[in-house]
Design a binder for these strands. Structure first.
Lengths: 353, 353
DNA sequence: CGCCAATTTCGTAGCGCTACGATTTTCCCC
DNA sequence: GGGGAAAATCGTAGCGCTACGAAATTGGCG
């Protein structure tokens, strides 16, 4: 009954005969043309210095002639790891993150890495999905924003030896590598600055504080620094994302509540909205109140009044994250789990305070 | 759960072979636990409806229990095509493109696609590299910005059957699919609007026109519409990227050149810079001059005066690009090479004119 | 000119998954 | 309950490349 005695002379029709090819020109074609083995071509592509110069140039010529483009998918599979870095941010519409991603893309592209991107819209569930998706590409590293993640996300990442960098926020509960600064400290700086200007009736104008946990931390830092100075600040909230519109709404709401003489904002975009609304109402800044933003966005130097703000060195974050990712990938030994870089933040005093 | 090194009993006693595993849990493990063949697991993952409900739920349970994450790299290789869409934009710092990428990412993620991103900084050589890199991932589609590409880029893409969408600009020389609008027409609209306001001494304030070919087209459209109306406009240039700072510089430069009464700007950010500079100089807008921007960025409604602008329906671009990409991937027959969607642009008249 | 080490090149066996066709099971109706 | 169609499941052969170890070649020097 077994099929063990198949004695038919004709070779059984083999299944899976005509599969679709992904590429027309493969490494083997280059090898053939350059009259070397595929191994040598592969080696040349990965470590040109290990191939004799003459052989190298022959291969180079063959690649050009055939227009060969290496297949990263196959390469990634064979090498058990792809040259992809997955970056997950809350939102690209937010200038900070757009900037960071942009800077990292430029730096990593130079090292032959590609960027897979995802945005969470501040949802931990969405982040979890994105991390799962990212992992399925066997990335060289995963870069997350902030330290606040779903438990499942942490578990998934822990079960994996992919380097993980959490950026834009520092703290103790980091998964692996951590680059950023303390948002509570930034909030504190804002409060102390306003107080140093003699302001005492203070409020924090916050957009989307429930979701944007980093803004919430700045708010909390602001609060405690005020309390420390014997001042009880107000927090005015708006549930929409930070925008100039939100800034206008928040100022209106604050003015309806009381006579404040100092405002710290979620970020510079909100602060700009405050400036606009004040202009419309004929309120003079900083005569009537002092205003401080966060982020040092470009327009802050040029609006009228120019914005006092706190600059979070986004470029330093991008630079450090990139360097650490590369160091980790190259197996540098001193970049251990728990490695942390504080990039700090500096206050930039301008016209609005 | 998973130990870091894999030494599951495998009969690999063959001449010292030990490669590194990419994953600890593979599809075969899920199959084993669910007591089905790997094929069935694969089928379930790709077309759940083709698997008996009971089998499906058994597999589902096994996946959960093992924490299995499919390997897209292996899947992509086997299926001759990955679920990646590569998007190449000039810059993520530019709000338009950040917005578009963001919208597309959200829409495509819903369909199980991932976004590989690159930015060219307006360099055609860089774009070429990025396209080459993109192709090496065998993406489901490639999305480019604009119609202006290096010859080699065109050749590479032509040698490939990957769907290509060029967005944000329409014209005749498109590679494959084209979604956008005519920038010359936008420039014309701006000119005609200023003229309709009785303005006759007109100038275009342009940032980075040498590189940003779309801004250059708006400028050219502006010019010809002016000429058509018997007006000879001036073009004031600044070689730095569009920013509020550039707006200030351009206004200063224009005022030093002559007495203009109408300005069209590269985009809203530049226009905002003009507003700021005018404020500092005590110039009243629109009493002294009318101002029109481009892009309908968020702050435009809220600054003082609010900005008259031209809105390019970025969301429509993102929506159309995404839909066309999906249609093409699903082999819809009527989306042929040369398919074009004009999303148009509409003028939004506000306080600055 | 022979010997050994260093340099360069090569052959082979997968990486984990999916397409394809074949095989088995289920279902329906006479 | 038997026959045939439909549904469900399976077995196999790669997809294109790289890691690995081994083989071939070169070079230096006694």
């Amino acid at each position: 009954m077994d099929s063990s005695d198949v004695e038919e002379g004709s070779p059984a029709v083999v299944p899976g005969r005509n599969r679709r090819r992904m590429q027309s020109v493969r490494m083997v074609d280059v090898a053939r043309l350059a009259d070397v083995s595929p191994s040598t071509v592969s080696l040349y592509l990965r470590r040109p210095s290990s191939v004799a110069p003459h052989t190298g140039s022959t291969i180079e010529r063959a690649i050009k002639e055939l227009g060969y483009v290496p297949n990263m998918v196959a390469g990634g599979l064979a090498a058990a790891g792809s040259r992809v870095v997955s970056i997950i941010v809350p939102s690209l519409r937010n200038a900070f993150f757009a900037e960071t991603v942009s800077a990292m893309e430029a730096l990593l592209a130079r090292q032959g890495f590609h960027i897979l991107i995802g945005h969470t819209e501040y949802s931990l569930e969405r982040e979890e999905e994105l991390v799962r998706a990212a992992l399925s590409w066997a990335p060289a590293a995963i870069v997350l924003t902030g330290l606040n993640h779903a438990d499942t996300t942490r578990t998934m990442l822990a079960a994996n030896r992919t380097p993980v960098v959490e950026m834009w926020e520092t703290g103790d509960a980091s998964i692996d590598i951590n680059v950023g600064f303390s948002h509570a400290e930034v909030g504190g700086m804002a409060a102390r600055h306003l107080i140093s200007r003699g302001r005492t009736r203070l409020a924090f104008l916050g957009a989307r504080l429930e979701e944007d946990t980093r803004a919430a931390q700045r708010c909390e830092g602001f609060r405690s620094a005020c309390v420390e100075a014997g001042i009880e600040p107000q927090v005015v909230r708006h549930s929409a994302p930070a925008s100039t519109e939100a800034g206008g709404i928040l100022l209106a709401r604050a003015l309806a509540q009381g006579a404040y003489d100092g405002f710290a904002c979620s970020n510079d975009t909100v602060a700009l909205g405050v400036v606009f609304e004040a202009q419309r109402r004929g309120i003079r800044i900083p005569r009537t109140f002092s205003l401080i933003g966060f982020g040092d966005l470009e327009f802050g130097s040029f609006c009228d009044p120019s914005l006092t703000t706190i600059r979070p060195s986004a470029d330093l974050i991008a630079k450090n994250v990139t360097e650490l990712v590369l160091a980790r990938i190259n197996g540098e030994p001193d970049i251990e789990k728990g490695y942390r870089v504080e990039v700090g933040a500096s206050i930039i005093v301008r016209g609005s305070s």
